[in-house]
Design a protein around this nucleic acid. Sequence first.
DNA 1: GAGACCAGGTCTTATTTAGAGACTGATATC
DNA 2: GATATCAGTCTCTAAATAAGACCTGGTCTC
Lengths: 137, 137
Amino acid sequence: MSGGVPPGLSFSEWQAAGFDATACPVRNVLDRIGDKWTALTLSALAERPRRFSELHRIIPDISKRMLTQTLRGLERDGLATRHVFPTKPPSVEYRLSPLGRTVLPPLGGLVAWAAENFPEIRRARARFDAMPETGGE
Amino acid sequence: MSGGVPPGLSFSEWQAAGFDATACPVRNVLDRIGDKWTALTLSALAERPRRFSELHRIIPDISKRMLTQTLRGLERDGLATRHVFPTKPPSVEYRLSPLGRTVLPPLGGLVAWAAENFPEIRRARARFDAMPETGGE
DNA sequence: GAGACCAGGTCTTATTTAGAGACTGATATC
DNA sequence: GATATCAGTCTCTAAATAAGACCTGGTCTC
């Protein structure tokens, strides 16, 4: 056996299968959820559907432009849906699609890992940054 | 109950705990593994330790600059270690640290999700892109 | 009638990120 | 003696990403 590499993470598998970076699912997915606001937006929508202005209020510092862009990205990938209610002041609701819901468990796993190990990462960073970069002599 | 939101992903929790984006573990972690080469590098190191040139050969299209930068990032965060062997042509080996190993399962979960759902995401994209952006009349 | 709210669009900068390619210096091969 | 390997560094440029400010149009309030 190969020593505990989770299935799907085996590099040689990818290579053997003829790795194509542009079509790589992982690259594609990480490009989306790895951007500045998507993970946050996703988790804001995880609890319940929300309206545009509501999201804008609760997500700290996001600009309307970025919020629109993030939501369009989620919509384009089929992770969220957009519902327009033609009320007097227009109201638009965003909600996670069934597909969008399925990403929550794996994403949650990573979030849990991050929360759990961030202290150690910070210590590692502090150590690394304190190291002398130019060896004295 | 809140309807199946994984623990740690609850937005209201974060808000209640006084969300600070700069210190946010999730943002920090996603910034690292969400970049262009880190996930790939991580999975190349998952199987076994590798030397710099070896990584450079097997990771398609990465430049030395990016490879160095990616490895430094992993080293800085304590996810990988660097071992220099002062042989005649110098040889440097990179290997995952114990901490680095612990990220493989959650990362693997996301990779599996990506692989499994990418076809559907692509269909969603095709649908979205085929939609008339300016409603005719 | 001046302004605010809704959900954005647009336009112009910054900042960040990535890439290409030349250079290092010691050894080793041809 | 020209060239290659090793593990990088360096500079410069290009591309992607994000921020900020202002604009829309209809209704609603003051």
